[in-house]
């Protein structure tokens, strides 16, 4: 089923400047994997380097399905309805 992924500004240089990408996937994880396969340069920014594929997402990449963080749902197994929306939302951290 087709779902739409909203891409944050920082990652649009890897998606031909597109802010919305439609992919196939029944869960958040499937949809994000399809996105990464369509735009391979995204992988290094989405997935932890040592996690293999499909792998774990980097800790600062948060995924919202219909405005709810998947951490509060079923993680990457969270189902997405046909026509649904997934948002990739960075969390920002740093320091000395």
């Amino acid at each position: 089923m087709a779902v739409t992924i909203l891409v944050p500004t920082a990652l649009r240089s890897f998606t031909e400047r597109k802010s919305e990408i439609t992919v196939e996937g029944a869960t958040a994880g499937e949809a994000i994997k399809a996105l990464a396969e369509a735009y391979p340069d995204l992988k290094v920014h989405l997935y932890q380097e040592d996690s293999g594929e499909p792998g774990e997402l980097r800790s600062f990449i948060n995924v919202f399905v219909e405005e709810t963080n998947i951490k509060n749902l079923q993680g990457l197994d969270t189902p997405v309805a046909a026509g649904g929306t997934i948002m990739l939302v960075p969390a920002i951290a740093g320091g000395v």
């Binding site: 963080n69 948002m87 969390a91 920002i92």
Partner: peptide, 11 residues
């Protein structure tokens, strides 16, 4: 020595 901006803050 650390800061954090949550994804909710980002939204």
């Amino acid at each position: 020595h650390r800061f954090a901006i949550t994804s909710e803050d980002y939204l």
